[in-house]
């Protein structure tokens, strides 16, 4: 089973995203902010195929997490998608430049998540 990591300070969002990602056959780990996510990545035994990360979170936000990830060895198959209320084009560009492979704005639908994962080659 492939591993996914969902990073969001909202438990409700983690639950909604987690349900969709599990349905697609992933094993899902969760973190409430970027710092916890880095710890989780260090703890998980195998490569993480998919990371869904919010932008605005306490302690370490999504952008800081992306930048921290850039400084580490990243598995070539790992895809990162930002899932956020930030809708300014400048912010999107920053996230893509910092290493996000995709970007989806909240609110989102289940189908929109699946469509994005299809673009990333994660689901057929």
């Amino acid at each position: 089973m492939q591993q996914a990591l969902i990073i969001d300070d909202s438990k409700a969002i983690r639950r909604i995203l987690g349900a969709t990602i599990r349905e697609l056959g992933f094993d899902v780990a969760e973190a409430g902010n970027g710092r916890e996510a880095l710890e989780e990545l260090a703890r998980l035994p195998g490569p993480v195929r998919l990371i869904l990360v919010d932008w605005n979170m306490p302690e370490m936000n999504g952008m800081e997490f992306l930048l921290a990830l850039q400084g580490r060895e990243r598995h070539p198959d790992t895809k990162v998608m930002m899932v956020t209320t930030e809708t300014a084009i400048d912010q999107m560009i920053k996230a893509l430049e910092a290493g996000a492979d995709e970007y989806i704005m909240k609110p989102f639908t289940r189908d929109a998540i699946v469509d994005k994962l299809r673009l990333l080659g994660i689901v057929n």
Partner: peptide, 20 residues
């Protein structure tokens, strides 16, 4: 609408070919 550009459109194309 946002819900429409969220569906299937690569973010790279959204930032290049759309204006808000």
């Amino acid at each position: 609408q946002q819900l429409e550009v969220n569906r299937g459109l690569p973010a790279m194309y959204l930032v290049k070919y759309f204006q808000r």
